[in-house]
Design a protein around this nucleic acid. Structure first.
Lengths: 139, 139
DNA sequence: CCGCCAGACGTTATCTTATTACGTTATAGG
DNA sequence: CCTATAACGTAATAAGATAACGTCTGGCGG
């Protein structure tokens, strides 16, 4: 993970970040580009460069299984712990959560195996509660 | 996951599967295509169609973070449980393992949240024991 | 003040990955 | 035999990502 300190965002970085925050789901790089043509964006690289920095700052996550990006849902701060995502295949909503116990189990495997872990990707596919019509949990 | 029953493999499926088995690491679809030009493959779709079936049969896994594919390392059979992968960023080797406890934790989250889970992607990045020069585990 | 360096930026071209569209072939069941 | 279905072949194109340039700006040592 190794987060980088976060200086002021540049103009392009701010634009990309706010596009992701406006969206109610993940956006692909090209979707972001289209969003920002009005602001003067012309080429994919402008988006990819901004995304690269935003990811390094921990403000944005990449969804590998979608080739798309979301703003981190943790309020403001960059969180150290790895994130996990539940992707609804019906409505496209993505829920981010902190997979504490799962991460612990994976870390344990890594330690045991001698694998030097730097980054963990966890993505769940399925249907969210609303789309599957399941009752609310009693918790 | 929902595995499909596995009938005889077709010629193309067999060729793709054996290319993946020959390889000592993950292959991209286009790398497979190049491998198989000698056998008459001409177009990406021949590879993608075969991969789709092989994945459905549980014989092949897709590595989302690499856009690449590996043969399942479980001896013969299609295993029901989800698989996890540890990808060495130095040597490119991929280790497949069964993340039992991690999966349990994720299932528990899903149950609690009302998320109807169909598929789980777990991919670890880092350096394998050999590349990081770590000592062998004492286990 | 000047010159230089590093970081962000802009632009074009290109590469890689994946899919759409459409027609053909092989085959099992009625 | 006839037809439905699954696999296949081919071409074209969409979608995602990067390489290789050059420019501009702001900070800093001389």
């Amino acid at each position: 993970m190794t987060l980088q300190a976060q200086p002021e965002l540049t103009k392009n970085q701010s634009l990309v970040f706010s596009a992701l925050n406006r969206a109610d789901g993940p956006l692909t790089a090209y979707a972001i580009l289209d969003e920002l043509r009005a602001e003067g964006f012309r080429a994919p690289l402008q988006v990819y460069r901004a995304l690269e920095r935003l990811q390094a700052y921990g403000l944005v996550h990449r969804l590998e299984s979608l080739n798309a990006f979301v703003a981190c849902s943790h309020p403001q701060c960059a969180h150290q712990e790895s994130a996990a995502f539940a992707i609804c295949e019906k409505c496209g909503q993505v829920a981010e959560f902190s997979p504490g116990r799962a991460t612990d189990a994976l870390k344990a495997w890594a330690t045991q195996t001698g694998f030097a872990l730097t980054n963990t990707t966890i993505e769940l596919r399925g249907m969210c509660r609303l789309c599957s019509g399941a009752p609310a949990p009693c918790a």
